[in-house]
Amino acid sequence: MKINFEKQGGLVPAIIQDASTAKVLMLGYMNEEAYLKTLEVGLVTFFSRSKNRLWTKGEESGNYLKLVDIAVDCDGDAFLVKAQPYGPTCHTGSDTCWNETNGARSIDFLYQLEAVVNQRKQAMNTELSYTAKLFKKGINKIAQKVGEEAVELVIEAKDDNKDLFINEAADLMFHTTVLLAAKGFSWDEVMQVLKDRHR
């Protein structure tokens, strides 16, 4: 069904729902331009009534909402937007704008990490973090670090020190996240391959 932007003065309410947990995260408003930008860039974008301009959720905090699906209600005057949240949705730091816990699993932190890594990539010329410095050294150095961490994980697997083994596994996951970002890929793409293999 086609959305009717004129019905409510050009602004349409958009209910944002976590695509994985189905938890309602927030309510925002979209005009036609915000709707088209959301579709174009894949990040949920609103029309901010207080700023009187388009506003991509997370543009300052890094807590983006990655678009998964968007549906129009039966009257053609409201959106249901399913998204993958990168970090807390509310500006207060809460998972939702109703101060509810989203119930994300620990594995979902990987998406938050991915968002931070991508921020460091964008700011590598001004950022002083380890991640930004790694991006500046280029793809060969990043790939080398992944190889080093993989070897260190294998070495720790031969011993019985749980803490060292888990820490090396974390190092490998982190550096793999950096490598994916450097190549312009995401964990979603890796997960899709795993899902496809599982069928």
Rank of each mutant, 00 (worst) to 15 (best):
E60D: 14
I16L: 11
L113R: 00
K23V: 13
L179N: 05
D77V: 02
R197V: 11
L128I: 14
V178I: 13
Y64P: 00
G28V: 01
T38M: 03
K137D: 11
T176Y: 07
K66D: 02
R53H: 13
Q8R: 15
K57I: 06
A83V: 05
Y29A: 08
T38E: 06
F47C: 08
G147Y: 08
F174W: 10
R120S: 06
C97G: 02
V146P: 05
G93L: 08
L194A: 15
V116S: 07
Y35M: 04
W187H: 08
K195V: 14
A78W: 00
L11N: 00
Q112S: 14
V154E: 14
T131Q: 07
R49I: 12
V116D: 06
E156F: 10
R105E: 11
Q17T: 13
S94W: 03
T177H: 01
H91S: 14
M124W: 07
K195F: 11
N125D: 15
Q144Y: 13
R105H: 12
F46V: 06
V81P: 01
L67T: 04
L180H: 06
L65V: 09
K51G: 08
F47I: 03
D188T: 13
K121G: 02
A143V: 10
N4A: 00
K183P: 01
I139E: 13
G138H: 06
N52Y: 10
T92M: 13
K37C: 06
E40S: 15
T101D: 13
L25K: 05
P85I: 06
D77E: 12
W98H: 07
G138E: 08
W55C: 03
V190H: 05
N4F: 03
E114S: 10
M26Q: 00
E168W: 00
G58Q: 01
R49H: 13
A169E: 04
L67W: 00
A157M: 15
A34L: 04
W98N: 08
Q144H: 14
A104N: 05
R199M: 11
D163P: 00
A143L: 15
E40W: 12
K66H: 01
K162Y: 15
E127S: 14
K66Q: 09
M191E: 11
A34Q: 02
Q144V: 06
N102L: 09
A132K: 04
T92V: 13
M26D: 02
D18K: 07
L36F: 10
S48G: 09
R53E: 15
N4E: 04
E149R: 09
I107Y: 11
E6V: 11
Q84S: 12
S94M: 02
L27M: 15
L134M: 12
F165Y: 12
N31V: 02
R199I: 10
T176G: 01
K145G: 02
G87A: 09
L27Y: 10
M1R: 02
F79P: 05
K57D: 02
L25E: 00
N102A: 13
N118W: 02
F47Y: 13
A19V: 09
F79R: 04
D75Y: 03
V117A: 03
A181L: 00
L179W: 01
N99L: 14
K158G: 09
